[in-house]
Design a protein around this nucleic acid. Structure first.
Lengths: 334, 334
DNA sequence: AAGCATTTTGCAACCGGTTGCAAAAATATT
DNA sequence: AATATTTTTGCAACCGGTTGCAAAATGCTT
């Protein structure tokens, strides 16, 4: 069917090895030979079979991209950056959608069967032990948006969630709120736990401010909306730090519905700063998570691990900053 | 490194072929043999190498998924449905991001090098000739969201865009608008052209209603917003049919900003019905495009083509329906 | 128990490439 | 011009599987 190395070799009247070498840079081939082979290859429309060569080289240039966040708009940005970044480096993303909570173990098998060179786990809700499964299977892995543990077993790239929680608390303080709340994402997610820990530890230093907390079931508009509806039923706080932007938007929707006004009656602070949060009809004040840097760094790390699989695990954390928009009251002067 | 067929064969004390057959269903193996092999495989943690076997079987179970819409939230839904649907059938999506308008030709090479079994082109803005490139290269291809041509050369699954344009026009008529407009997506996209053609042909039958038209530069919030800002500068129409939901939301944002009210002062009709359009703080009246059905059908078609590569090309079109929400004035009684 | 049909197994070649090694060719040295 | 050195080339084995074919094993008849 397709044109193979052998066909080219025959047409060029050379050995198969010669053809192979002509397509491998750095290989030992004379200019004359290369020319001859390239001519024959062009005539026949030959393309080397990447999978066949992977068999001997042990490199497929396939990178597994595992995620379970196919309902959060920010992940479109994440996929865009990952797929572009990988293909710019000659790597191919092989996507694994873990949305329906099928056995994560199976995904490890699956990706191993396709001999991916490495795996990126892009999720803040998958457990650290999941990423570890790949490492245990000797597959280089980076946990993007993962937890910064004191003794990380896999590479983590993301933000310091504890610090992000503190930052949220400090914002509330600066703006003079008296009763605030943490409305987190799924309680089982490490990101939620860490942010809450940062938030409450910072709050502990401000005894004048009361704070409460609750959790949404998942990172989705609907979950945010439902949770805020519930909160509004009884004595809501003055400002909420929501688990992420999509939850924030759900919360805003619930607030609008009651006729309460943002930021006058209730303040909302998100986290992520997805493109949509900038939209003028959303205009969400949020903690900016530098996903471009996080993803580029993840890719660089992946590339480095291809040559150095047993690289000592590290955590690469990027600082967040507040993206000031219209859902929190202004900072008050002292 | 990894456990191979040979290792299993040695441990089980059988031939390599026996092991291979034990892992191929429908192959000629005795129950006893299978048991023995499975035991050895389990002991060693053996997983067959999908790529190696593809070499002889000619099937990789890799499906190329090509798109250039990584900035339109509906594509997150599209990717979710595609990746889940494919992997539920034991197929693996290999993503190709054409966002930065790199040479599309290259993507064909790329996917051929990885011996994908078939390709899905998921885009309404890529030209029909692009999809055809795959067919010419003997790669089964389905153009999802493609144009329904009278003599289709590749399989197309989507909606009838001409009819969708007509439907939009009829909605405007039913609601008694006197001056309406078409605010399309990129003019070069076949979907835009077809919708406009349907829209204007239907309008031609209603001489009492004036209509105008314009086009946004791309399918994005910003482009929709800018275009609507421009339109609002001089004598806007009473209702706009926008190229898609994300353009509509951009338009809504521009309208809100001027203090005009929707749907009282200006009506907006979108197309797609992405999840977000249902959000209470957006609440967009839009033409529902049944993407779940479109994508499932695309996948079924792809699967069918694996066994029948030269299948006669067909167009599978799904009817749209209006999703009534809050951005058009109600239907008027006669 | 012998003879035949059927099932199961292993051999060996193959899929489309890569690569270590030694022979051949080209170039440099004296 | 003969020899030493370096570069280029082809041979053959290999990567991890699959598969047609024939031999071996099993099951069935009589």
């Amino acid at each position: 069917m397709a044109v193979t190395l052998k066909d080219v070799a025959i047409r060029a009247g050379v050995s198969r090895s010669a053809v192979s070498r002509a397509f491998t840079d750095g290989a030992s081939v004379s200019a004359k030979m290369r020319k001859k082979v390239e001519k024959a290859a062009a005539d026949l429309g030959y393309r080397p079979n990447a999978l066949a060569s992977s068999l001997t080289t042990g490199r497929t240039k396939l990178i597994g991209l595992v995620s379970n966040n196919f309902h959060n708009p920010i992940f479109l940005e994440v996929f865009d950056l990952f797929t572009r970044g990988l293909q710019d480096r000659g790597l191919r993303p092989l996507i694994m959608n873990l949305s329906d909570d099928q056995d994560p173990e199976k995904s490890v098998d699956m990706l191993k069967q396709y001999s991916v060179d490495a795996v990126v786990v892009a999720s803040s809700t998958l457990s650290p032990s999941f990423a570890k499964t790949f490492r245990d299977a000797n597959v280089p892995v980076v946990h993007c948006f993962g937890r910064n543990s004191s003794s990380p077993e896999v590479h983590v790239v993301g933000i310091d969630n504890v610090e992000a929680g503190r930052m949220a608390a400090r914002e509330f303080v600066k703006r003079g709120y008296g009763r605030v709340a943490f409305m987190g994402g799924p309680q089982s997610a490490t990101s939620t736990q860490d942010r809450f820990s940062g938030f409450s530890s910072e709050m502990a230093g401000h005894s004048g401010i009361a704070y409460s907390y609750s959790f949404a079931e998942q990172y989705s508009f609907e979950a945010g909306r439902r949770e805020m509806q519930r909160l509004l039923e009884s004595d809501p706080a003055e400002a909420y730090f929501c688990g992420d932007d999509v939850l924030s938007i759900g919360a805003l929707s619930a607030i609008n519905e009651t006729g309460l006004r943002v930021p006058e009656d209730i303040g909302i602070l998100g986290l992520n700063d997805m493109e949509m949060s900038r939209w003028e009809n959303i205009d969400l004040t949020t903690i900016h998570q530098p996903i471009r840097q996080i993803i580029n760094s993840s890719i660089e790390l992946i590339v480095a691990m291809l040559d150095e699989p047993d690289r000592y695990p590290e955590a690469r954390l990027f600082p967040c900053r507040i993206a000031e928009r219209g859902t929190l009251r202004p900072v008050v002067d002292l």
